[in-house]
Computed example of a mutant assay.
Amino acid sequence: MPKTDYTPWYVLPQGKCQLSDFDTKPPAEGQASAKEFEEHLADMGEKLDKLQSTLHAAKTRGLLVVFQGMDTAGKDGVIRSVFTHVSPLGVRAEAFGVPTDLESRHDFLWRIHAKAPARGEMVIFNRSHYEDVLVTRVRGLIDEETCQQRYNHILHFESLLQDAGITVLKCYLHISKSEQKKRLQARLDDPRKHWKLQPSDFDDRDVWPEFTRAYEEALSATSTPESPWYVVPADSKPYRDSFVAGLIVQTLENMKLKTPKPTFDLSKVKLS
């Protein structure tokens, strides 16, 4: 599989994101066989494991990976595939559903900040603080003024994480409505997957254009050079997973991580 150029999938800061400008399918140069995708993902997994080990040992930087997308876009799947071969030490995934009563009585970032990574950690958000400018917006739970305020709070929050040494990488898993229909039908046809289905999965299809506009506004307002958004083609699961794995590896490599030096003189150690 050829090396991916992520530039075309980067949401330009201060630009206007139009999701229709991004394909949900792999580009021509991204076409590969199932075996090639599997080999690439294994290669990226090996690199990711080494980089995460260095991240954990050094404890000078941290990484927060945010996954957002329409239902069935593959948030669970990409987490499972990409992080299969990574040591669980210093890595955790956090999922955010409907806020509890206690969470609802706090500011919307309260529950999010508590789950953010420390230096040395890699944390994956399956849904995130962006739900509070997406679902709430589409459902009419917040108005335009509140939404704009939350964009600003998000920008300041992610800037705070950056100042603390935490890199924020955000991925919008871009799935087509036709592909979502196939995946929802597959879940309906498989009793083992019925537990994944929620009434909102079907209700949200009726307001697909509204969710699309909400995502476009959120990505436009919050993609920054320090905390960028990438639009990931998600109709192909193998391509999606390889894309994300490579992007995370590139992000960690750009940190220029270094293994810490020993805390004592190893030359004086004599094994008996």
Rank of each mutant, 00 (worst) to 15 (best):
M1R: 06
T4I: 15
T7V: 12
T7L: 13
T7E: 15
T7H: 15
V11M: 03
Q14W: 11
G15N: 09
G15K: 12
G15A: 14
K16L: 12
L19H: 02
L19I: 06
L19W: 05
S20F: 08
D21W: 04
D23R: 08
D23K: 08
T24L: 07
T24W: 01
Q31M: 11
Q31I: 09
Q31C: 09
A32G: 08
S33Y: 04
K35V: 13
E36T: 11
E39P: 04
H40K: 14
L41I: 09
A42L: 12
L48Y: 03
D49C: 10
L51N: 01
L51V: 05
L55F: 04
H56M: 10
A57M: 07
L63F: 03
V66Y: 07
V66A: 02
G69H: 06
M70C: 08
A73N: 06
G74P: 03
K75H: 09
D76Q: 05
D76G: 09
G77L: 08
I79K: 03
R80S: 12
V86F: 01
P88F: 01
P88L: 09
G90C: 06
R92D: 09
A95L: 10
G97M: 10
P99Q: 07
D101Y: 14
D101I: 06
E103V: 00
R105A: 11
D107F: 05
D107E: 15
D107Y: 06
A116Q: 03
A118Y: 12
A118Q: 13
G120K: 00
R127V: 10
H129T: 05
R137F: 04
R137D: 07
V138D: 04
G140C: 03
D143N: 14
D143T: 06
E144L: 10
E144A: 13
T146E: 12
C147P: 03
C147F: 07
Q149M: 13
L155W: 07
F157Q: 00
L161E: 00
Q162T: 15
G165V: 05
G165Q: 02
K170F: 07
C171F: 14
Y172M: 07
Y172K: 02
L173D: 00
L173Q: 01
K177M: 13
K182A: 12
R183W: 15
Q185C: 11
R192F: 15
K193W: 08
Q198G: 13
P199T: 07
D201P: 02
D203C: 10
D203Q: 15
D204A: 14
R205C: 15
D206C: 10
W208V: 12
W208Q: 07
T212A: 13
A214V: 05
A214D: 09
Y215Q: 04
E217W: 10
S220E: 03
T222V: 11
T222R: 00
S223K: 10
S223P: 09
S223G: 09
E226I: 09
W229P: 02
W229N: 01
Y230K: 08
V231L: 05
P233D: 01
P233C: 11
A234M: 04
D235W: 02
K237M: 08
D241I: 05
F243D: 00
A245N: 01
G246V: 01
I248Y: 00
I248F: 00
T251W: 08
M255Q: 13
L257Y: 04
T263L: 12
D265P: 08
L266P: 05
L266Y: 10
K268L: 13
K270Y: 11
S272E: 15
